[in-house]
Design a protein around this nucleic acid. Structure first.
Lengths: 229, 229
DNA sequence: TCCTTTTGGTATATTTTTGGACTAATCGAG
DNA sequence: CTCGATTAGTCCAAAAATATACCAAAAGGA
């Protein structure tokens, strides 16, 4: 494990290593870490050094030291961005989109500008030319939803949906999605996209939101149908 | 990256390299960077040069130099996560909650368990005891909304709302929020929370969502009223 | 229960490491 | 050539790390 090139580790280094193990989740809440004397050996340092590192981690709230008993993890791992999103199941993603996108439509009505809408209709046109090209359609579709949320001018929403979109563009999800994309489904989507655009143009927030819900419902059906195959 | 053909690096170059490592996150907060003598060797420069670079980085606030101890990173890497959320305005947060929380209610009806609902009602009781204690109420309120989203069992949603909640617990936002929390407002909130709970208990997703919308509308009004003061 | 082992807590003398400061020689471009 | 930056040394003092010993609380087995 310890390669020959292991340099000397100071208390700060060891603290950083353990802190990272905890943040990463390798050491979970209430886990007991090895005795100081063992840690000393594994890290190749003296016990006093380990002790300094642990004392520091205790002050930072990462661990709790109980005399005679041991040292215990006392800190929840940070759920990192990537973890939360990468571990999300397709259904979780779907539910999240169900929460966000209809309201995004409402906000688009409120805050969107003509130039935003022009761009979105341009993408609609592009999608309509892709009836026989699922991959091309999928790309344009992602861009469309991205443009939609952009038009809300809400940086937080944009960021959230961007994160979600990053997953959607990979893995099984994409593959599964492409399976469901026959010409008929694409035509349905295109109609819905146009309807959404019209509702936004005519400043009808609730109608836009409702069509988006239908749109997502259609997508969810395709998804479950595909996963049953 | 630094191929054998590394030409002579000046103090400014080395400072730039290290600065970049820190910004990129390869060197994280509290990490100790190698001793000056080692850096001198790895960068192929004399110790005095390294020293100049480090001194400069210290003045810029990237590192902290402790005599006899070492040089430590004292700068958080730019994280898009925290940036997007920390720069969010209260109104953006509000719109995002408007998107998420009503749908969270629907999902709570679908996926929540009795134990979840018990916990939420316990929090309702706690809030009702805080009519004259805005701070206590606020804490319980945050926990309530957290418990609500927990009951959806959707890790992605939980993470998103967790992130948003972390901001909400700080800064002007909290201060502004407390200003708006007179006893009357708290009573209104409590009634709404109870109504939401009832709708979830009786498995009425749309009713729960609608009451949550009202609840958020109330909160938004309080907010705008406060910001006009 | 009692006894042993394990574990953290403390103390201390010693050695090593590390940054701080200074200097003279060297290199490079204007 | 001159001027600035760089280099390659040296010595210093503070900080950290080591090695060792002993104590007290907790845990576990007989």
């Amino acid at each position: 494990m310890n390669a020959p090139g292991d340099q000397k580790l100071g208390a700060a280094d060891i603290a950083a290593l353990i802190r990272r193990e905890i943040s990463k989740g390798n050491l979970q809440l209430h886990d007991r870490l090895p005795p100081e004397r063992v840690l000393a050996e594994t890290y190749g340092a003296a016990r006093g050094t380990i002790r300094k590192a642990l004392t520091r981690l205790e002050q930072e709230g990462y661990v709790e030291i109980r005399a005679g008993s041991g040292t215990y993890v006392a800190h929840k791992p940070d759920r990192s961005t990537t973890d939360a999103i990468e571990n999300a199941t397709p259904l979780e993603l779907m539910d999240t989109r169900f929460a966000l996108e209809p309201h995004v439509c409402r906000l688009a009505v409120l805050h969107g500008r003509h130039s935003d809408f022009d761009r979105m209709e341009e993408l609609c046109t592009r999608m309509e030319a892709c009836t026989e090209d699922p991959v091309g359609f999928s790309e344009a579709d992602t861009e469309f939803h991205r443009a939609l949320v952009d038009s809300t001018r809400n940086g937080l929403l944009i960021w959230i949906i961007d994160q979600i979109g990053n997953v959607r563009s990979e893995d099984d999800w994409t593959r599964m999605r492409h399976l469901t994309l026959d010409a008929q489904t694409i035509r349905t989507y295109n109609v819905q996209h146009r309807q959404i655009m019209n509702a936004i143009r005519t400043r009808e927030p609730e109608r836009a939101a409702n069509i988006m819900k239908e749109h997502l419902e259609t997508a969810r059906l395709s998804l479950t149908r595909a996963s049953e195959t």
